[in-house]
């Protein structure tokens, strides 16, 4: 295969919703022959960050993509920037054709305290964004 390959950026969170988003990204990549860049980050500003995947969770996503025969790359590191900024910067850097994110309903208070990564990505992305809805119930706790 020659020429520039399409790249899909997957904003990954270790939850049922995140795994659903990963499946969607895999299917999209398999259809178009694109490769997937999995992004998972934390600001490391709290003791427990449930949106930060551990090695096993990253390995599961990698296994999922590999089973689908999809080329992939993992960006898994602590970063002082906000998660949305990291995803958008990675998308710009790899010239992403598509960003896949999971979206779920948030309370106004939750939005005020934590902000909405998905909203920020949807509004600021320079490429199409595929929003994967939560199929309830979305378990917030990791397995």
């Amino acid at each position: 295969m020659t020429g520039p390959r399409r790249t899909i950026v997957l904003a990954f969170v270790p939850s049922a919703l995140g795994r659903e988003a990963a499946r969607v990204a895999r299917d999209q990549a398999a259809l178009t022959g694109a490769r997937v860049v999995v992004v998972n980050t934390t600001r490391a500003d709290r003791l427990v960050d449930l949106r930060w995947a551990d090695e096993q969770q990253v390995a599961e996503v990698v296994a999922l993509l590999r089973r689908g025969g999809v080329a992939h790359e993992v960006r898994h590191a602590a970063d002082d920037r906000l998660a949305a900024e990291v995803v958008l910067d990675v998308a710009a850097e790899v010239g992403a054709a598509l960003i896949v994110i999971g979206v779920r309903r948030r309370s106004p208070v939750g939005k005020l305290v934590l902000g909405s990564t998905a909203q920020r990505i949807l509004l600021d992305a320079r490429c199409p964004v595929l929003a994967v809805p939560a199929t309830p119930p979305d378990d917030a706790l990791p397995r």
């Binding site: 990253v58 898994h76 590191a77």
Partner: peptide, 20 residues
């Protein structure tokens, strides 16, 4: 499964990406 996040600009791609 080495991540490539530390040197985003480099041309070397992680080995598993190549194999897959």
């Amino acid at each position: 499964e080495q991540d490539a996040g530390h040197d985003p600009g480099s041309g070397t791609r992680p080995s598993h990406a190549a194999t897959s």
